[in-house]
Simulated scan of single mutants.
Amino acid sequence: MQRNFIKYLLLFFIPLLLGYATIEYLTLQLPSGYEKNKTLFQDEGDTVEVLVLGSSQLNNAVNPALLKYPTLNLASGDQHHNTDFKLLKALLPKLSNLNTIVLEVSYSHFELPHNSPDFWKNSVYLKYYSVNCFERTTYFKDKLIYLSFPAFYSEKIHAHYIAKSEKAAFNRFGFDTLNYEGRFKTLNYNEAKIDSLPRFKINKQPNPEIFKTNTALFYELLDYLKANHLNVIICQTPMYKAYLPQRNSEILQRRDSVLTHVAVKYSNVHFLNTEEDTLHFKVRHYWNESHLNPDGAATFTAMLQQKLDSLH
């Protein structure tokens, strides 16, 4: 009786396990910059001089292939300063040649909540970078990428394997050189149509309590970088012209007041502010209102190169 029960359990669970193993395999084979970053870090980590941390805005803006200093870009969508700090502390001992950290402080960076200990990308950081951002003991399931965000990866699997609609080409630095298929290209870069769009993603809700929490950690991060004798470049990436007047003045003033104080307090901190640069960045440089495409990244990366040169 017991033997039959175990047999039935095996007959039930083995197909499920095989099915999940197949889904996980397909997920890991999706085009991704994480695997490229992992390989670069493992093979050339001791040569890296510049580490880029931030959200998708800086991930889209910096193409390390265009920089003359060895650079690792670990910026990623929805990644906040607390995760940047965790990654930095875990990886710094292995980056023996590192001299410069590039950070992002976008318009509302200080008034958006930090990533929680259950942030779904914690599985990505653990799987690819061996960094535990969960703030707890990790388990086998924490490295399972599909389980970290099934809805997201199901859509990715369908787009890549079935619809074959996903276009991506990651260079060896993890930068997607074909990342043009955004809102602006869909509208054929027609400025009249883009400017008449009824809405786009922008935070307009001030939050002084989150501001206090976020700025406290930001100063802690800057203190850590200064103690480790690292140069810092704080970036404000370009925003499309329609984005700029939509910013909340209270959020903007608080952000800028912090950066003004940082400029006085930290001699190792430098700035690359292109947020309002409508001279060098035109409509065809953008993926959407707040993200650059690879052409925009080429322009921004050239500006970053000039800033890096000034530190040498």
Results as ranks from 00 to 15, higher is better:
residue 183 R to D: 09
residue 157 I to D: 03
residue 141 K to V: 14
residue 153 Y to F: 15
residue 128 Y to M: 02
residue 154 S to A: 14
residue 186 T to V: 04
residue 112 L to V: 14
residue 145 I to K: 03
residue 119 F to V: 04
residue 171 N to G: 10
residue 115 N to W: 10
residue 125 Y to H: 14
residue 119 F to K: 01
residue 183 R to N: 06
residue 109 H to W: 02
residue 156 K to G: 10
residue 130 S to Y: 08
residue 179 N to V: 04
residue 177 T to K: 13
residue 113 P to L: 10
residue 117 P to F: 01
residue 121 K to F: 05
residue 126 L to M: 08
residue 163 A to D: 15
residue 103 L to Y: 04
residue 182 G to R: 10
residue 105 V to I: 12
residue 120 W to V: 06
residue 128 Y to S: 02
residue 157 I to H: 03
residue 168 A to K: 15
residue 116 S to R: 13
residue 104 E to C: 00
residue 178 L to E: 15
residue 175 F to M: 07
residue 152 F to I: 12
residue 97 N to A: 14
residue 167 K to N: 12
residue 100 T to F: 10
residue 122 N to R: 08
residue 139 Y to M: 04
residue 107 Y to T: 09
residue 104 E to V: 00
residue 105 V to W: 00
residue 180 Y to T: 10
residue 127 K to G: 01
residue 105 V to K: 01
residue 97 N to P: 03
residue 97 N to G: 05
residue 125 Y to Q: 09
residue 119 F to C: 04
residue 108 S to C: 08
residue 148 S to V: 08
residue 191 E to C: 05
residue 121 K to G: 04
residue 160 H to T: 06
residue 148 S to K: 09
residue 129 Y to V: 00
residue 103 L to D: 04
residue 96 S to E: 01
residue 166 E to Q: 14
residue 169 A to E: 14
residue 110 F to P: 03
residue 172 R to H: 14
residue 151 A to N: 12
residue 180 Y to F: 15
residue 156 K to A: 15
residue 141 K to A: 13
residue 163 A to V: 02
residue 141 K to L: 15
residue 171 N to T: 07
residue 133 C to V: 09
residue 187 L to K: 13
residue 190 N to I: 04
residue 125 Y to L: 13
residue 116 S to W: 04
residue 190 N to T: 06
